[in-house]
Structure formats: C-alpha cells, structure tokens
Amino acid sequence: MTGPLSRVSGSQISLNHATMALVSFRDVSLGFGQRSILRHFSLDVEVGETLVLLGRSGSGKTTALKTVNAMLLPTSGKVLVEDRPTTAWDPIQLRRRIGYVIHDSGLFPHYTVAQNVALVPQLEKWPAADIEARVTSLLQKIGMPIEEFGPRYPGELSYGQRQRVGVARALAADPPLLLFDEPFGNVDPVIRLELQRQFIELRRELRKTSIFVTHDVREALFLGTRIAVLLDGSIEFVGPPREFLQASTPEAYAFLSCLRPLEV
C-alpha cells in the first residue's frame, strides 16, 4: 500500500505465529454480583478473519466484545490480545489499537464529521498533514467526500451515514483489530444491505481482523468468515458459515429456523 493509508502507527502485529490468534479467550467467566454473563468462554480469533458472535439479547455477546478492549475485565480466565492478557496491557494503549463501532454510532455530537474521524490520530499525536490526508482518504472510501460531509455535524446526517462515519472513525488510526457491536441494527433493510456491502468491500481492501456482534442470522452468514453461536454466556457452536448451515445444536438450529419461510 502506498499513500496516506500506509502511514501505520498501529498495524505492526506481534504474534506467536504458531497460533495466529490475534485474540484468544481462555476460559473466560464474568459476572456482575450473582449474575454470571460469561461462563467458561473459550475462543481464538485468527488474523484476517471476521468472527461473528451470534446470539440472542442477554447471551453475553456484547460483554464478550467488551472484554477484548478491557472495557470489562474477566472475573476468571483471561483474554489475550496479541498474546498478552488484557490485564497486562495499558488499557489506553490497547484501545487505541482496536477500532470500535457501536450501534447508534456514538459519534461526538459537538464534533464535525472530519473532527470525529480525526480523533484517534489526534490523540496519538500524528502530524497534522498526515491526519488530514488520512481523514480525506477515509471519507472518500466510505463514499462521503470531505468537501461535502467533512464540515457537517452528526445531527445533520442520516442514521446510515452516521454509521459509516463511525466505521471511518474506527479505522482512522489503522488498528489491526476492529470490534463491531451490532453496528447496523437500527436501520431499514435496504440501507443495512448497503452498509454490509461496504463492510465487505472495506474488508477486501484493508484486510483487518474483526469481531462482529449481531443477533441477525442473515447478517452473520453474509459477513462472517466464522460464526460462533452464544447461549447463556458460553459457545454452543463455532464454525464457518457452510458448517453453520448444517448445524444441529439447538440454539444454532433456532437461528437457522429464522431463515425458513413460515409454515402457514
């Protein structure tokens, strides 16, 4: 890659290449008081894959996601990022190496689109010219050219546009890993498909590793290179979409039933 996109502060990944796991959940349990959200959750996320965590609300998928960037710490077990437990990372450094896209975008309403995208590079003290080049090229990539959209505030955008800016903001500092928390949830199906297509396009181009949380089985099949089905805080099934379509475990089957037409 040449040009501004190759300006990399965070892309060098140091890994034990025998495993190739960028993120590794090792027997992770997490509870709040009496309630346990994750139970003996173990999973490896390999470099370059898009791992979808599929589950109902309350299955623990968002909680699992938040243990990766140390927003939550496991009660027992550990989460390794680049072979280092999240508890051993400086949480600020860790989070700046991980892009995060949340439902409802979480864009800062008092920052313009350009300022929102520039945020992490600014926190990382990139030179101003590099930041500008990066923001310009990212906004171009998501189809929202800086001349038109750069000076607008999030409140002046549609929901779909805000989500796209959220993706651009997460990509800004070129992190090796991206976390998506139901980013395309509250949007009509036509826009959702457009966002999903763009996600695949960006993935082809940027080759990032992603963990993607959703409760939408179609989205899981469309975007995932591997699908993990969560039930009550543990993994019930994990495998590529082809295997998932044949899965016979009860929860995977329940999700697959959503794909079949209603029998009247």
Partner: peptide, 15 residues
C-alpha cells in the same frame, strides 16, 4: 450525556 457517546469515548482510548 448519551451512554453510547461516553462508551465510545472510552473505547477509542481516551484517558
């Protein structure tokens, strides 16, 4: 302040 705004500030690595 909206929880998602605050959460994303933390998740982006703000001190």
């Amino acid at each position: 302040i909206d929880v998602t705004v605050r959460d994303s500030a933390t998740a982006l690595g703000m001190t």
